[in-house]
Every structure is written in C-alpha cells, then in structure tokens.
Amino acid sequence: MDRRRFLGRIGLTGAALASLGAGAIALHDRHGTGLYERARRGPAARVRLPSFRVPDTTGSVQLAIARGTDPARLVATALGMLGGIERFVRPGDVVLLKPNVAFARPASWGATTRPETLLAVARHCRQAGAAKILVADNPINQPEGCFAKTGIQAAAAAAGARIVWPRPEAFSRVQIDGEVLSSWPVLGAPLLKADKVIGIAPCKDHNLCSASMSMKNWYGLLGGRRNQFHQQIHRVIADLAQMVQPTLVILDGTRLLVRNGPTGGSLADVTAGDTLIAGTDMVAVDAAGYELLGRDPARLEYLQRASARGLGTSRWRELNWRQDWAG
C-alpha cells in the first residue's frame, strides 16, 4: 500500500472516530435534570405581559354609560364621555381588539360580541391613526365557524382589521403570578405585538360564575387545559384581571343574555339592555354591568376578590363616571 492511500484510509477512520466522539461529548447531558418538567408542559420560556393601560390624568372620566340602541352611536357617545379615542390610541399604535367569539352562533343569540360594536370601535381606532388593528379570540367551538357565524370575521374585514387565529403555534406560556394561575399558555402572538388592548364583551348570564362580562372575556385568550378553571372559577377570573391590564374595556349591554348562559340558544333568552358601558377599570365596568342584569355586585364573588386584590373597584359609583343618551 502506498503512503498516500495509507494516510487516506487512516485519516478517514480517524475523522470518523473524532467526529463521533466530539458529537457525543457535545450532546452529552451530564446531569439529566429538568427533563420531567420540560416534557410535562413544554418549553419553560415565559413572558410577562406588559400593562396596556394609559395613565389617568386628573379629572379624566373612568367609566361611561351610554344609553340607546344603535351600537355605532353608543360607542361614539361612550368614547366621547371618556375623552375620545385619542386618549387611548396614539397614531402608529397596534391595537388588539378582544371580542367574545366563543360560540358558533348568530350574535342575535346574545352569546357573543356584536359585530356592529366591534366595527364601530375599530373605526374609531382607525381614525385615531392606529397602524394595525388585530382581532383575536380562542373560541370554545371550532374557531373558523365561530368567527364566520358570529359576524365578527365580516366586521373585521370591513374594518380592515386582521384576525389572529388561535393556531397551536400562536400560544406561549405567560407568567401570571395569580392566586391560582402562576403561569399559563396564552394566545400570545397578538398580545405581544400590541401596543393597546381593548376588550369588547357581551353582557351575559353564566351558569357557574353567574355572569360573563369583560373580566371573564380574557378567558378567551387562554389555551391549555382551561376547562379546569371552573374548579376555582372566581379566583381564576380575578387572576385573569391581573394577567391582562387593558387599555379600555367595552361592555355591550345592548342585548342581554339573561338566562341559559353562557351559550344561550334561543332568542327567548335575550332581552334588550339598551346600554353600553366603557371604562378603564374593568372591575367597575363589570359591577355596573352586573346591575344591568338585575343582580347585586356585592354578591358576585369574583368582583369582590378582584376589588380586594386592588385590581379595580366594584363600587363603581365612587369613580368619576358619566352617563348620557346616544342620540
């Protein structure tokens, strides 16, 4: 064998030995710790949501109640009382609108956000110079059907807003540090892109927690095994209020689902509420909404828990509030 071939063959074997050895050492997991936890719930990478609030200025109105039937006028009137959309949305902002699109049924059944209300809010944001408007929810029913049948998809299209679909990859684990939820998979893709977040919720009866309004609306941003929340529903709803600090919440009480909630299923379950409540304190907004349902906020556990934790106040009349007729 000549020298060249000898060196060639020795070199080849040597390279194989060296690369295999180096590979093994490079991949070596010496301690093997943390596997169980990582395998149990996926990557631990956690983010914390920023606060989306805009600071109150002295004398600013915190809660506005508009009475009337036309969603566009109600939105305009309520925003006007709060000081105009310009107070909340700056030119160039990315605004996330969070409607309740939980069920694949017509909005007239009162279980989901009215598309007219979403469209009106989106148009105000557009006027204020929002660069991009996102619409997101993780429905209980099949998402495509929910967005189509509630009319939210058409409203988003009409407003030039983009729907961020709750695909598996859109979720990330968010640090909450709540009473029950320490961290949870959240529909993070739109939240982490947004500068401002506006919740737009229907005002409706709920079988377990009595009422689903703007605080409960954030449930729709969660993924994972969220059907376990019912075991401690009031604590969890208070945690949701801690997780998301929105710019503004809008509680649409034009239609009230007064029984058979949160799904409804019949026009007979819906009554006219002729009211829209908007505010920066969602605990207060929900307390006012609960009264709209003819119930006493002092007896709604999650409102009291959220108040006690300083996330807002259920005694909404103590805030700076206004009321007006919408044309």
Partner: peptide, 16 residues
Amino acid sequence: DTPCVVCEEVCPVSPK
C-alpha cells in the same frame, strides 16, 4: 366534592 359543570356551560340547546 369539587365545583365544575363545564358540561352545563357548553350545552348548546335552550333550555340546556
């Protein structure tokens, strides 16, 4: 002895 009733919540007919 644990609260739940997710089943009632999602039941789509009216009355449930």
